[in-house]
Amino acid sequence: MKTITTLLFILFSLTISRAQQQDGCLGNGKERALRGICDHIITPDFFDGEYSYVTKFKKAAGVTPEDSEEEMYRKIRKVWDEYEDCLTCDTIAFSLVDGNILKAATVSRNESFYNTVIKWGVNLNRIDPVDDKTVLDFIQDKIVTNPPNIDFYEAYYKLLKYQGAKHAADILAEQTNN
């Protein structure tokens, strides 16, 4: 019994430690609004005419009702760029621990999130340090390993590629050539 209690305490401590690391990443000021963003991407709520992840990004970016649509997008892109390393998911619903939220949206087949971030014009070419892959690489892997959802994966692979998304190998080759 003592061994089980000790193991549970260790697991609980690790969970608290990981949560504190994530909170430290998004722990002060307006960016605090992005805490828990993963949950809003995996299972988005629709409230007052918009998805909860849109509300969270708008709050973090300091979007006001007076802002034009383009100004809103600019502000959100700025927050996305500034906190991109923090926009990760660590949840049981997503097997890639601390993987990029774009990849979590892939696993949850959140088409509206992809359509929204494309509209915002955020970076689609982050090489995720947890697996050294971009979202395009991740989707390509899903096409091979998850045939039941192949139509979704193929559609978003093509869409993201059309929007400028690249494979990690292509990005690294470009960096080497420059």
Rank of each mutant, 00 (worst) to 15 (best):
L124Y: 08
I150G: 00
S112F: 10
P147G: 01
E84Y: 01
D132S: 14
V79D: 02
A105W: 05
W80D: 08
I127S: 05
E84W: 00
D141S: 11
P129K: 09
A105V: 11
S95L: 07
A105R: 07
D98R: 12
V130C: 07
C86Y: 02
F138R: 02
I92D: 15
I127K: 05
I92W: 15
D90K: 06
D128F: 02
A105K: 09
N115A: 13
F94S: 05
I139P: 07
V135M: 03
K78E: 15
P147H: 09
I139D: 09
D132K: 14
T145M: 02
N149P: 00
L102F: 07
Y153N: 11
N115G: 14
K133I: 04
K133S: 12
T116M: 09
N110Q: 14
W120N: 04
N115V: 01
N100L: 08
F94I: 04
K142S: 13
I139Y: 02
N125Y: 07
V122W: 01
C89K: 02
P148Y: 12
A93G: 03
D131E: 13
T145R: 09
P147D: 02
P129A: 13
D132W: 06
D131N: 15
D90N: 15
A104P: 08
V144W: 00
Y83M: 00
L102Q: 13
E84Q: 13
V122A: 08
Y83V: 06
L136H: 08
L102N: 11
C86M: 04
E82G: 01
I150A: 11
D98V: 00
L102V: 01
T145W: 04
L96D: 08
L102D: 06
L102R: 02
C89S: 14
Y114D: 10
D81G: 11
G99Y: 04
L96F: 12
I150P: 00
T134Y: 14
F113A: 06
T116Q: 09
D151M: 02
C89Y: 07
N146Q: 10
S108R: 10
Y83Q: 05
D137G: 03
N110R: 10
K133T: 12
Y114Q: 08
L96C: 10
L136F: 07
P129C: 13
Y83L: 00
V79E: 05
V135N: 08
N146W: 02
N110P: 13
N125E: 07
F94D: 04
L87W: 04
V122T: 13
S112V: 14
